[in-house]
Design a binder for these strands. Structure first.
Lengths: 198, 198
DNA sequence: AACTTTTCTTGACAAGTGTCAAGATCAGGC
DNA sequence: GCCTGATCTTGACACTTGTCAAGAAAAGTT
């Protein structure tokens, strides 16, 4: 079975996951077939079932694999900012930047999160990831509160929901209209973050 | 071709749309097949192409049909409230109520909106509907501002994005955990709406 | 009643899906 | 070298999908 090189096995899984993310980000969950996914990899379509039991297992593994790297995206911003305004600007810039660079990954995330309302098997993984995203956002808001010297005016779940709403709307507009909308996102962040502290 | 009873033709389309909404709300856009949709109607699967050119045309027609009725959902609240607190309570209650009563429709909406980032043909219709939703929310916020006597502190697009974020998160939690989360939504609205006026 | 047009059903089509099993290919130990 | 187990490919399976065409049934017209 899985004798020694359990690392190599896992490295292949990651390789598959990376190819899967490419296709999933391009086509979405529903239209990304295993053949298409394998087509974007050095392997053939049958190999998927050697490393994963299901299409679902592959998808969940892939999105976990991606999000694991990304929940630290704003940590440098949190660490290095020394004033409220600096934090806002750096945070807003990072938000715009990740839309520019990884729009397909983000729309995939929203696709899966929505799909989890229809397909129960997705739900646990999505709920768990969403919680880590909430924590990620809260580190920003909490730090902003510290820098301003005022306590947060909203709980973590609310802060996350609000900023996620802004982000999603920006992603939507970016997909439809491109680049130009990203300034608007920064402007919104400049308005909203200050509302989150007393 | 379409001789006289153009009304009857349209009434059938509406009938089909209603059946489609049932199925789409249950299974989501990807897994709702025309056969399944027709199964939830008095007709057979072939009839769809008599009234619609595409699956896409049916879906777009259906969601338009639904949203047309729903953009007035909060207008009574706006009209009848005479104090800021009354408006907040009535608005929060209506939000919770629509999740309770029409969760499948809402998750369908989010499904389609997300899908529009992958399928260009959906984009125009979705963008247009989203704009009417923004206007719907803005009528609430604007009225709240009037009742408090203070000007809004955020533009319409921001207010919509924030509240939509709250709503979506509540819908997600409701789907996973049920009923109990709806109190949390009301609490969040009580916090957030006051932040939207100066 | 006969005829025409609208409406709907049935059955088929080509294409695509996830899954799996049989076997080819490769790597490492003897 | 050869053998064994891990790794990968190929080809098939059962099934579902949107679409459409041919014709049945119903409605309307004269």
């Amino acid at each position: 079975m899985k004798s020694r090189p359990i690392d190599k096995f896992d490295r292949r899984r990651d390789e598959l996951a990376e190819s899967a993310l490419l296709t999933l980000g391009e086509l979405g969950y529903a239209r990304a077939s295993l053949r298409e996914i394998a087509g974007n990899s050095p392997f053939s379509h049958g190999v998927v079932h050697y490393y994963f039991q299901d299409k679902l297992e592959l998808v969940i593994y892939s999105v976990r694999y991606y999000k694991a790297r990304c929940v630290t995206r704003y940590d440098a911003v949190v660490r290095d900012s020394t004033s409220p305004d600096e934090l806002i600007e750096a945070f807003a810039e990072k938000l715009a930047q990740t839309i520019r660079a990884e729009a397909p990954m983000h729309r995939l995330w929203y696709d899966l999160r929505t799909q989890s309302m229809f397909e129960e098997p997705l739900r646990d993984a999505i709920t768990e990831i969403d919680a880590t995203l909430e924590a990620m956002i809260w580190r920003v808001v909490d730090r902003y509160a510290t820098l301003t010297g005022a306590p947060p005016s909203v709980p973590a779940s609310t802060a996350y929901a609000m900023l996620d709403g802004l982000f999603q709307q920006a992603l939507l507009a970016y997909t439809a209209a491109g680049e130009t909308v990203l300034d608007g996102l920064a402007a919104q962040v400049r308005i909203v973050l200050p509302l989150m502290v007393r």
